[in-house]
Design a protein around this nucleic acid. Structure first.
Lengths: 146, 146
DNA sequence: GTTTCATGTAACTATTTATGTTACATGATG
DNA sequence: CATCATGTAACATAAATAGTTACATGAAAC
């Protein structure tokens, strides 16, 4: 999640297509990893990829219309919470009672988190970044800092 | 978490001290694992452990005063959310922007989850369990079911 | 007191999950 | 057709979690 947003935000700063290798260097990881995490976004049409000379990844969406929740969904909606229920022994009534209590709490928290993610668009992230870049520039430093 | 609650609820159903081995069998795990997860609860005084003949684990708290949040704390307050921030490259402004957005959402969700856990006492869980046991008994089945 | 039973804990061994890597196929461009 | 880039499978590594073994400590029974 954090990684994908990082990539998207980097891409939003300059136009050209970006190769997986370029992005991988910026994220300090491997090109294949980039392709993996971008696959979901491509399938949903948020980015486009092209092969051959001058190819690479391009933003293909209106940043003001895509929320962090959309990105989360594009990643396959992985579980948000660290603690899941014991799925073993579902016939045990003790387990059922425990799960019922935890499920309620977990569900509410998850719903809130998704709602919050749905309120933030990539464009907002970009705006925030530009603000940070502005104040940093005054100190004559680059985006990646020390 | 789920495991600890399972153990506590099992203990609340009968008085006697329970050996780690007994509890381990009920949880389908190893006695040492039981001792590990109970250690935090013991340190905070929620349960007591005794050695030798007739020893084992005993509940040592008012179940109506201990919330799921207390139990969570006793476990060392492990992170609740599955996705943390990339901590790498904290000097990168892009990362800072991403983290700022995610932190807000994560913090709210975590706070809600903790609040919900704080609303549920072990006694409530016990009540719920007894209700389930009641309706199950009518069918002539045991707590662990099929 | 010595045997037995139980916890306490360190050290080690799976097992799982996420991440990174290599290798090669596919397609686009010059 | 040589080069560059993605697509993807297969494998390797790393970190976290859970399970196991081994042994020390203390309490009760005899």
């Amino acid at each position: 999640m954090s990684g994908v947003l990082h990539v998207l935000l980097h891409m939003a700063q300059q136009p050209g297509p970006f190769t997986s290798e370029t992005l991988a260097k910026a994220m300090d990881t491997n090109p294949v990893v980039i392709r993996r995490i971008m696959a979901g976004l491509r399938d949903l049409g948020y980015v486009r990829s092209e092969k051959g000379h001058g190819g690479g990844w391009t933003l293909a969406c209106d940043l003001s219309k895509v929320t962090l929740r959309d990105v989360y969904t594009a990643l396959g909606s992985p579980s948000l919470l660290a603690m899941g229920n014991r799925t073993e022994a579902p016939g045990c009534l003790v387990e059922q009672a425990v799960n019922a209590a935890l499920d309620r709490a977990f569900h509410d928290a998850e719903a809130l988190l998704l709602a919050r993610l749905g309120e933030v668009t990539l464009a907002m992230l970009g705006d925030d970044l530009r603000k940070r870049l502005g104040s940093r520039k005054l100190q004559g430093m680059s985006a990646h800092g020390a």
